[in-house]
Every structure is written in structure tokens, then in C-alpha cells.
């Protein structure tokens, strides 16, 4: 890779963010979609938590984490979808070749997609957390500084998976679009969003611990139930995330090269 390929321009990143912002503000269905599903699921988990809270002991303690678990899972899922959706917009509008023959570097493209995933999530996620306070008296923001660490770790995982999904779509065309929507769900049972890692069979537990979000969800339960911030878990998640981000970036670059070899960029489609 030449030195020019590594050159970085904030203006080009800004151009891409502006492109997605123009799109977002021009389409009210896109804005509604950002809030709709998180809100529906928040109500479902909120009422479930209320129902189970009438129990006592361990059941009640576990249930008290449902809303926090859902909101953090939603952040992970929507962080990846926000990244991938912006990328998919280029495929749907057949604009990707225009970008690939422009001076836009892959790293600038990826950073713009990361920023957009944060913006898209903020549009949908913040109102839903406020609804959770209003309807269920649950204030996610009470988690304080720990929340920033949780958010950062979950975004890192979301971006790593987003880079892999986008690379696969770039290489294989819109036929691989389904992966964008479904890939994160393989993490749902394994990352122990709603139950402790010890619930899993013994042989599955090492796999779970190799997934960065597992440490975040365990850390969240430690904070909500035991009021303890587990810095060790967050450091473990951060270390794993660095590996995942490197793997995600490598997969994006390799799949971009494969797409060029396959001639997939000259006529983007299925």
C-alpha cells in the first residue's frame, strides 16, 4: 500500500458525513425507523421487568437487569446496523463506484461510517432511554461513567462486525445483504445479554468469553445487582475489541481487494 493510500483528510470524512446527514434529514421514514423498533422492544422488556419484579429474591434481582440489558444490546445491534445501513445506501443508490474512484481512502470511508453509526444511534436511542425513565422509572444514565465504558466497548464490537458485513456485501453484492441484518444475532445467545455466563454449558463458556460484549453484559449485571464496577472485565473487553477492530479493518481491506479482482465494483448490484 502506497503512502498516498494512507493519507488522511478530515474534509473527505466530513463530505461523507454530510452526504449521510443530507439523506437522513430528507427522509422522515428513515428517522421514524430509527426510533420505532427500539421503542417497541423497550416497552416489551419494560413490562416484562415490571411483571417479574413482583417475584422475590434472585428472580427479582435478575429481572432488574432486563431493561439495562436490552438497552445495551440495542446499542450493540443498532451500532452495527447504523454502520452497515450507511454503507448499504451506497449499494442501493449504485454510488459506490463513484466513491471508489474518488480520492476517498478506505480509512476515511470507514471513519465516516463509524461517526454515522453514532449519530443514527443517538437519534433513536436517546429518546428511548427517556421513555424508559418516564414509563418504568429506569434511568440508564444513572450508570454514570461506567456507561461511557460500556458504550465504547459495544461500539467497538459493532464497528468491527459492521466492517466485516460491509466488506462481504462489497465483495458479493446485494445478495449478501441479509448478513448485514442477521450477523449480530449470532452474538445474542453467546454474549449472555439477559443471563450470566455461568448459565451456559461449560464448554461454551470459553467461546462466550472470547466475545467482547460478554464482558460488558457481565459488567452491567455486576453494577446493577452488586453495585460494583468491574474494571477487569472492561479491560478484557477492550483488549478483545482491539483484536476485533483490527480483524474487521483487515477484512474490509481484503474484501475490497477481492471485489476489485472479481470486478464487483464496476457494476454494483446482486
Amino acid at each position: 500500500m502506497s503512502a498516498e493510500a494512507l493519507a488522511f483528510s478530515p474534509r473527505r470524512v466530513g463530505a461523507m458525513i454530510l452526504r449521510y446527514w443530507y439523506l437522513l434529514r430528507s427522509s422522515w421514514p428513515r428517522l421514524i425507523e430509527l426510533i420505532y423498533w427500539p421503542a417497541v422492544q423497550m416497552f416489551m422488556w419494560g413490562f416484562l421487568q415490571l411483571g417479574v419484579a413482583r417475584q422475590t429474591g434472585a428472580v427479582m434481582a435478575a429481572a432488574s437487569t432486563f431493561l439495562a440489558a436490552f438497552l445495551l444490546w440495542d446499542l450493540l445491534f443498532r451500532g452495527q446496523i447504523g454502520f452497515s445501513m450507511s454503507f448499504m445506501e451506497e449499494m442501493w443508490s449504485r454510488n459506490l463506484p463513484n466513491l471508489m474512484i474518488s480520492p476517498l481512502r478506505p480509512v476515511e470511508f470507514v471513519i465516516a461510517l463509524m461517526v454515522m453509526s453514532v449519530i443514527r444511534l443517538a437519534v433513536g436511542f436517546v429518546p428511548v432511554t427517556i421513555l424508559a425513565i418516564f414509563f418504568f422509572g429506569f434511568n440508564l444514565w444513572d450508570l454514570g461513567l461506567a456507561l461511557v465504558v460500556f458504550f465504547a466497548n459495544l461500539f467497538f464490537t459493532a464497528w468491527a462486525v459492521g466492517m466485516l458485513c460491509s466488506g462481504l456485501v462489497m465483495r458479493n453484492g446485494l445478495g449478501a445483504e441479509g448478513l448485514t441484518w442477521s450477523m449480530m444475532f449470532i452474538l445474542l445467545p453467546l454474549t449472555c445479554v439477559y443471563y450470566p455466563v455461568t448459565t451456559l454449558p461449560l464448554w461454551v463458556q470459553p467461546i462466550a468469553w472470547a466475545l467482547p460484549p460478554t464482558a460488558v453484559f457481565e459488567g452491567m449485571r455486576a453494577l446493577v445487582i452488586d453495585h460494583v464496577f468491574r474494571a477487569d472485565l472492561m479491560l478484557w473487553a477492550l483488549g478483545l475489541n482491539l483484536l476485533w477492530l483490527a480483524a474487521g479493518a483487515a477484512s474490509f481491506v481484503v474484501l475490497l481487494g477481492k471485489a476489485k479482482q472479481a470486478g464487483a465494483l464496476i457494476q454494483t448490484g446482486e
Binding site: S9, R11, R12, G14, A15, M16, L18, R19, Y22, L23, S26, S27, E89, E90, S93, R94, N95, P97, N98, L99, S102, P103, L104, I266, Q267
Partner: peptide, 24 residues
């Protein structure tokens, strides 16, 4: 190329602004 489009929901001015920024 006829195989390539510009983002449909952006106005012509917005599209040219974005590409103007990309090309410096």
C-alpha cells in the same frame, strides 16, 4: 457511466457539494 448513479435522495446541489469536498 450508466451503470453508476448519484444518491437519489440528495439534491443535485448536495451531490455536487459532497463530490466537490471529496475531490478537494
Amino acid at each position: 457511466s450508466p451503470y453508476v448513479d448519484l444518491p437519489h435522495r440528495l439534491t443535485v446541489r448536495q451531490n455536487l457539494t459532497v463530490f466537490g469536498m471529496l475531490y478537494g
